[in-house]
Design a protein around this nucleic acid. Structure first.
Ligand SMILES: NC(=O)c1ccc[n+]([C@@H]2O[C@H](COP(=O)([O-])OP(=O)(O)OC[C@H]3O[C@@H](n4cnc5c(N)ncnc54)[C@H](O)[C@@H]3O)[C@@H](O)[C@H]2O)c1
Ligand SMILES: NC(=O)c1ccc[n+]([C@@H]2O[C@H](COP(=O)([O-])OP(=O)(O)OC[C@H]3O[C@@H](n4cnc5c(N)ncnc54)[C@H](O)[C@@H]3O)[C@@H](O)[C@H]2O)c1
Lengths: 236, 236
DNA sequence: CTGTATTCGATATACTTTTATCGATATGTG
DNA sequence: CACATATCGATAAAAGTATATCGAATACAG
């Protein structure tokens, strides 16, 4: 029974990436189940809520080390705890935002991150006009203070929202300051940096999937759009 | 030679999803090559710039139907055009933003989308206080006008940036108005809607990858962080 | 023109991820 | 307690992706 909380690090490393990407969805569903007073949830119930196959849910949950009960399902609370442990969401991590522009301030104000164990502490910007301002209760500080504060506060995560051209330079600066993980929102593909994990949020990739599916849809059953495409487009 | 531009729709549909996700990176690299005056680029050159294997680049490019020349490489201009065609980025699509909050306005102001064939025309919001404002030169309109304008302007794409609770409702409204593709930035997993493509930007999934890798890194070579973890964390 | 270095693309192989099958365990009803 | 139903987990199969190999085409230097 306690094997579900086993902490052998080697297993955590070996969880398949697609599985890791799905884990947050499970947490969301399970928390809803918990609120409804459920102590257990079956793989088919979870799968149904997420549009997945139950077998995949079982495999994913097996990967985080929780054992279910035949005829009953998986223990909800235990499951949430195990997933959050796998993801390192069990104790919150502080993070700095580099680039207090539109996206950076939006992220800094996003309350949803608290649930993911992410705590944005402050923003940094090279623009003197922005430094000193406060957004969503968080200060915008000058880049000069970055390295010092990373060390003092033991911040490991930096969120990169600078212009594309400044990305490489900012990443190098962050790495040198001791940042261990970079969440890169810029379209710049960073070269690997020794000892630094880089995860990129690639909106272009996401949009590519959307628009290519849309394009092939038009091509396939063109009837729907064909008529509209003939009419001239007007402006607002 | 002209086979590279073949427009048989059935091929477009069959491009593997991981390949589609990589296509935008190729476009970025190729445009840089074009600026440098290159007429051809080899798979190994492209791979080197992106940290990929050359064989994967060749396979991906074969999927969009462009043929390279042995000893020379791939024709840059032709390649860009073919990729953009595959993605439906060859002629820009208009889009509406639903939810003119922090994220919605950031997206509306993002100039990078122009390159991806996406043109945000206007924003919509249910909050009367926001309606009438202009952000980045784009109007915030009331939801009541949404359906009519979708029809009048033949808008097929809506970008969902409403609060999580409003996502399902907004999606249904968009679908009813005739929207064909939803780019969903909310954490809500939408149920499939008939005739509507939904692509989700899942920040939680991305963060999960980042933080789980960070967590396993700490577990593995704990030395680096162990010392820091012992010290009490101070505040800004 | 000959030899060497590039490079592509077809085919084959290896690897990863998803899905299927099925026996074993649990619940609850009559 | 017998039996129908639900559920899990181990193993196997299938599908999807990435990588390796190698012959053929091209460029170019000598
Ligand atoms: N806005 C979006 O919706 C969106 C979407 C996808 C990707 N992005 C990417 O995110 C990044 C930020 O976008 P944005 O719209 O917030 O841009 P922005 O111009 O609003 O913000 C960039 C901020 O970075 C600061 N900055 C510039 N150079 C810096 C440096 N060297 N060090 C520290 N700070 C620096 C600027 O002063 C500015 O405040 C860009 O790379 C953009 O491509 C943005
Ligand atoms: N801010 C971020 O960095 C961030 C990051 C990831 C995901 N998200 C998600 O994006 C969404 C928007 O985030 P945000 O920070 O911009 O929130 P926000 O509160 O700033 O903006 C939401 C906007 O939607 C409007 N709205 C509410 N209900 C509506 C309805 N029924 N129809 C039309 N408009 C409606 C509100 O008036 C508001 O302007 C949320 O679902 C959030 O979870 C945000």
């Amino acid at each position: 029974m306690l094997r579900s909380y086993a902490m052998t690090e080697d297993r955590q490393i070996s969880i398949a990436l697609p599985t890791i990407r799905r884990l947050p969805m499970y947490v969301a569903v399970l928390e809803k189940a918990l609120q409804d007073g459920q102590t257990h949830a079956s793989s088919s119930q979870i799968a149904g809520a997420l549009g997945l196959e139950s077998i995949q849910v079982r495999k994913d949950l097996a990967a985080v080390g929780v054992v279910g009960q035949p005829g009953v399902g998986f223990p909800v609370g235990e499951l949430i705890a195990a997933i959050e442990k796998s993801l390192g969401w069990d104790n919150a991590s502080d993070a700095f935002v580099i680039g207090a522009g539109h996206l950076g301030t939006a992220l800094a104000g996003y309350r949803g991150f608290a649930r993911y164990g992410l705590n944005i502490v402050a923003l940094f910007d090279s623009d003197p006009a922005k430094v000193g301002q406060t957004v969503h209760g968080k200060k915008i500080l000058p880049m000069e203070k970055f390295a010092d504060l990373v060390a003092r506060l033991h911040v490991r995560i930096a969120i990169l929202t600078v212009p594309a051209e400044a990305a490489t330079e900012s990443a190098a600066l962050a790495a040198e300051a001791g940042i261990k993980a970079l969440w890169n929102f810029t379209p710049t593909k960073l070269a690997p940096i020794d000892g630094v994990i880089v995860e990129r949020v690639d909106l272009a990739a996401s949009l590519a999937v959307l628009s290519s599916r849309l394009a092939s849809l038009v091509g396939a059953s063109g009837a729907t759009r064909a008529q509209a495409a003939d009419e001239p487009e007007s402006e607002v």
